[in-house]
Amino acid sequence: MKVVIAIDSFKGSISSIEAGTAAAAGVRDVFEEAEIITVPLADGGEGTVDALIRAASGQRVDLMVTGPLGEPVQAGYGLLDGGATAVIEVAAACGLTLVSPEERDPLATTTFGVGELIADALERGCRRLIVGLGGSATSDAGAGMLQALGCALQDAHGADIARGGGALASLAAIDRSGLHPRLADGSVRIEVACDVDNPLHGPEGAAHVFAPQKGASPAAVLQLDAGLRRFADVCREQLGCDVQRIPGAGAAGGLGAAFAGLLGAAMRPGAALVLEAAGFDRLLPHCDFVITGEGRLDGQTARGKAPLAVAAAAAARGIPVIALAGSIAPEADALASHGITTALPIGPGPMPLEQAMQPETALQGMRRTTRELFRLIRSTKGDHH
């Protein structure tokens, strides 16, 4: 019996690793000699660096960078493949959690520290960058990052624009001649985990959709949107690059536009990119079952979230997929057509959400549900190994 387990975190309850360990214990309660491989799962958001360091036996690098409000913060990223690949979460340098609620202001916050993380990885000789865009406190179209990597963003007087989304309105010129040479010569492959398709500006853009949750007032949203529009205009007029039309340009306050439009990055669905980097396909030969899951299986799951990427990889090899969740919405029935063989809730019965999300409750439910399911599997197989 070989089982591969890749379960997403149950947000606010248990981590991907904790969920996987509990499910593995449930399998082993029934099949003591089973070969069980547990892979931490992530989609490019929080936890991606740690998941890939664990899955690919990488190492962590920590350094001081410029935080979202210009203050020094300690940030880290991962090195994989013997140092050839860097995994970076932008939230490590410009994340919302780094700014207290009363100080959150996308007019002022900057992505400069993200550029410093990238520059450090380039100096170490990395040839591939995997970047997760989730959780930023910024809406500066990646201007700070570009400045940290050597680009000059100038106003009409030739002076460097200030940091923060509010300064974009004064942007008159972008000069890439000072860009880090390893980026300028195209020798570094950048892949960005991105699961939104918002344009840079406009009603569906970075400012209107995402800035309010980052602390922007209605007036600030309009100011930010005008700045993002200015950034797009300069890119189009001076660089011949229409960043507004790139799907996902508005991700992470416009970092998507800077990565895809000015640094030549490929935008990819986060979960599939992370699974590939973790070498997930290499784990599947001779596998009998794959177990995946997340806190809630619903219609969103079918739109490319991590469990679906796991199911797609397993289904391509004809491997049955078990999905375990804290709760399962009625529309999750549609997941059967995406490779999920069976979906089961882990709760023992009706209970308040707060109780269900207690880590101990979730871990016990994960182990018990897995154990009961594999008892059934053992009885149907007549297999007692």
Rank of each mutant, 00 (worst) to 15 (best):
A302C: 04
A51E: 03
S57D: 15
L273T: 05
G144M: 01
L284W: 03
G205W: 00
A258T: 12
A316W: 01
A167N: 12
F112L: 14
V274L: 07
R182G: 00
Q244V: 10
D50N: 11
E116F: 11
E71F: 08
L52D: 04
G304D: 02
A306E: 01
A216Y: 06
R245I: 13
G26T: 07
G76C: 10
L133P: 09
H286W: 08
E237G: 01
D43W: 07
A152W: 05
A216D: 05
I190Q: 04
Q74K: 08
L69P: 02
G158T: 05
G279Q: 11
G44C: 12
A173S: 12
L363R: 12
N198V: 11
T138P: 06
L239S: 13
I174P: 06
I130A: 10
V49L: 09
P72K: 13
I17Y: 00
P212F: 04
A277E: 14
T369L: 06
S187D: 08
T85D: 02
P350T: 06
G279L: 11
D160M: 14
P218T: 12
P212I: 08
K11L: 04
A34W: 10
S217Q: 01
A312L: 09
L283V: 14
V30Y: 12
D29E: 13
D185S: 13
A55F: 04
G78M: 03
M267S: 01
Q358I: 14
R60S: 15
A277L: 09
A219D: 15
V114W: 03
G45L: 07
G26K: 08
E276F: 02
S217K: 01
V196E: 01
P181Y: 09
A336P: 00
I5Q: 02
F280G: 03
D140K: 02
M145D: 00
T342I: 15
F280P: 02
A51T: 05
H384C: 09
G264M: 14
A143R: 03
A278L: 07
L122M: 11
V188I: 14
A311M: 05
E276D: 15
T48A: 10
C287V: 14
D50T: 11
D43L: 08
